[in-house]
Design a protein around this nucleic acid. Sequence first.
DNA 1: ACCTGAACACCGTTCAAGT
DNA 2: ACCTGAACACCGTTCAAGT
Lengths: 206, 206
Amino acid sequence: METAVVLLDTSGTGGLTMRRLAQELKVTPTALYWHVKTKDDVLDLALDRVFAEVQLPEKTNEWRADVRTLVSRWREVMLAHSWAPALIGRPMLGPNVLARTEFLQASLARSGMSESELTVRTRLLANFVIGSALTEATWHQTGDPATRGEARDLITADPDRYPTLTASGHLDEQRWSDADLFERGLDALLADTGLATPPSHPTGRT
Amino acid sequence: METAVVLLDTSGTGGLTMRRLAQELKVTPTALYWHVKTKDDVLDLALDRVFAEVQLPEKTNEWRADVRTLVSRWREVMLAHSWAPALIGRPMLGPNVLARTEFLQASLARSGMSESELTVRTRLLANFVIGSALTEATWHQTGDPATRGEARDLITADPDRYPTLTASGHLDEQRWSDADLFERGLDALLADTGLATPPSHPTGRT
DNA sequence: ACCTGAACACCGTTCAAGT
DNA sequence: ACCTGAACACCGTTCAAGT
């Protein structure tokens, strides 16, 4: 798995081949099939290994901070392995994934929201992270940063068609960074009305 | 492209093959390479064709309703072609994609928020939709609905490890549907503080 | 328990050649 | 302008066989 992840990191999803993996391990391609049932298994295991890199934060007494830390780390790990977000299109039930979701939902639960609201907010946050990672990874993967400039030019060349996008500087890296936009999106998700505000006097746990 | 989309719909990403596509078109595989440079081009074009299915809503005088309509349609189209969300991991700059983003951002702009807030909210919404579509498509794709039940059992079998997930009925289709959770997530995104509330007396445009 | 060798059915893509 | 035929280098996977 270690070398599978390395292969994926260096040459993307297309770079992982049973034959190349075997070669890297100095072994016959067919030997892999004793350890693993199919290539999809390799991908599942590699993905789970990446999720294991997302360290669960120390629990503080500010649940919002805990959520933010978890979710920011999650995004960073996915961006570090930019092939990963696109692979989420398969059932993810490894223990690492579940532990991460448990932590997220447990933190949110500390706000005192109702059970159904809790489910809604968990999905909202998780899907925002996944969506962000997927779209951002797109630009990371096309190694070439010029692509993004061309994309912006495509918009600004047609200001009649895309007036708002042009005016707001969509995709303009000079004005906003992906990381900032992500953090501010998080601000919005955590600052909503409908969420109980933290008690003014924290329940003085030692 | 039409038959490419059909092929993708019926047998997923793995089912689209230059050779099979050619066969369906009663043509030699190599003939395709006169019309298209590479297989990735076929995927890009198929994806763009799917985005064209997302009809832009009529503009009403409630921007929130417009956003909701657009974004719900967007999700539905992606779920109708469940191979599509995973393909978003490539630059999407077809005119259909841009027109959709323009409509979304223009609608949001009518709330009167600042330009930087506008950029944040556009990304927030778009990434939520993408993330939702990607995770939901996962379960659609494994045609077998039992998988999801097994997934839930995996959680409830270990209530000590996943107390919150167990209690909140994560993945319990009896309690919540994906569509409802999505709509309620949208509620949260559109009801936030920080967004100007609509004027009590609508600016009486005829 | 773990690996090899040979083989099968399939890929994407190129390139010269046809009409 | 559009398509065919032959060919190349590569896939994932199976299965009998070795140690």
